[in-house]
Design a protein around this nucleic acid. Structure first.
Lengths: 249, 249
DNA sequence: CGCCCATTTGACAGCTTTCAAATCGCGTGG
DNA sequence: CCACGCGATTTGAAAGCTGTCAAATGGGCG
């Protein structure tokens, strides 16, 4: 269960190396972090609002999301996570979770003790910076989502979300910006965008009628990237990706 | 201009010591950070979306906010900042700003070079952790705002915002949770909540009629904290304050 | 083949926006 | 001390985007 010669933590490396260059020794130290593997089913909770957290959780495969419940019982999804994402670094460092983390699909997870993370972060500046930047980029995406739900209409919100997924999935090697498997129901899209499932459906149909996207089941193909990005008021800078990851024609 | 015996950076200490305990030596090192003072007027930009940033900006007095513009020209305010807040740590560490930072009132600022911040963060683990936690708490507030604009109605959104201000102002020593000077116009409140100024006005009037708040000019007094917190679906955990800062009766 | 959940569609209601205009607050200048 | 000017606040009436409620359709799986 404790990865030595063949650590399962490799997906984390690729993510962190998006932000900084790591030395071989840093890489080895990261791969040598202690962890416990666990597989969970869709819909299961990975962390619960208000509960103490002492492990960070690395997503090895599958998709997960963070969400908050409001007084009316409605749910707001705060972010979507995929392979290589540290889905619970924030909750772990802050000790008590301020939101829920839930599996969107069946997930393979690696739980890493908080103290091991803190230790490596402060002993190895490059690793520390990478982890910090990772949480800062998460923060940047949160800011964009505030603007998305706060000031854009339904069509723009959804187009924006589809663009974000396209680029992040492509960067994670899980799809192309011209099309990908979207693992979410319309209800979950609604919870991402602050809309209702019914209106999400109507809006997606309209995007289809306008020739911006095509859907068959859960797969989305983007007919016209430029048009969709325009419709979604989408500018990728907030994802803080390297130029070679966002250049597209 | 370079603070030595009497550094102007003291407001930052109090903020950081909300998250961790610092040694005397850490405190001295923080106060010895190089900085440049600057005063700016209301509405002036402190950082601009898309522009390179190489200094972090500490707010010594006054209020500031972060905002993004969307394609229609509408503005979404992302967060409000006050005395002691590092308003531009995120932009600075990410190198290129992904949002604008603007003065809400006349402000006194201290600009600290990014490299000095990075250095102290990695040389002094307690300082590093405090700075990291500071950005993580910012992130927690962003998440709450996503839920606020995404899934709450106008009345709840505004009540929530007023509660957040109350606690943060009180923690910063700038007001009481029973009442405070709100430095924002209704238009700015609208930009925080994703509403229109007209609807903000109607909603505030309704909160007044219902006996939850009283307003005279810019000063807000909270008649009934419990009722306002209930109306605003406000639970302070996301602010990650210490217990003694949020206990109120 | 049948069940169950997700998607799609329709009709209608409602919260919020829009557009205008009136009123208020307050610093400035006479 | 009071009139003036300008931005902020307040109010009204009407339109619109999105939500609600229900029901029909579709798709995947045992």
């Amino acid at each position: 269960m404790l990865g030595q010669t063949t650590s399962s933590l490799a997906p984390m490396l690729r993510k962190l190396e998006l932000w900084v260059t790591l030395s071989d020794s840093d890489r080895e130290a990261l791969l040598a972090l202690p962890y416990v593997l666990k597989s969970i089913e869709s819909h299961r909770y990975i962390a619960r609002d208000g509960v103490k957290v002492d492990h960070s959780c690395l997503l090895l495969s599958g998709f997960a999301y963070r969400q908050k419940m409001v007084a009316t019982g409605e749910r707001q999804i705060l972010s979507i996570h995929m392979q290589g994402d540290l889905v619970d670094l924030q909750n772990s460092l802050l000790k008590v979770a301020d939101h829920n983390v839930q599996a969107l699909t069946p997930c393979d997870l690696a739980f890493i003790p908080r103290e091991a993370i803190r230790q490596i972060a402060f002993e190895r500046p490059a690793v520390g910076e990478a982890l910090w930047l990772d949480t800062l980029v998460d923060g940047s995406i949160f800011r964009e989502w505030i603007a998305n739900v706060g000031r854009r209409d339904a069509r723009t919100r959804l187009a924006h979300l589809l663009c974000e997924f396209a680029l992040r999935l492509e960067a994670a090697g899980l799809g192309e910006h011209t099309g990908y498997e979207l693992p979410m129901t319309q209800e979950q899209l609604a919870d991402c965008t602050g809309l209702t499932p019914v209106h999400v459906d109507r809006t997606l149909m309209a995007l289809g009628r306008d020739g911006l996207i095509t859907r068959t089941g859960r797969s989305v193909s983007i007919q016209n990237w430029k048009a969709l990005a325009l419709a979604g008021d989408f500018q990728s800078a907030y994802l803080h990706m390297r130029d070679d990851q966002v250049r597209m024609d």
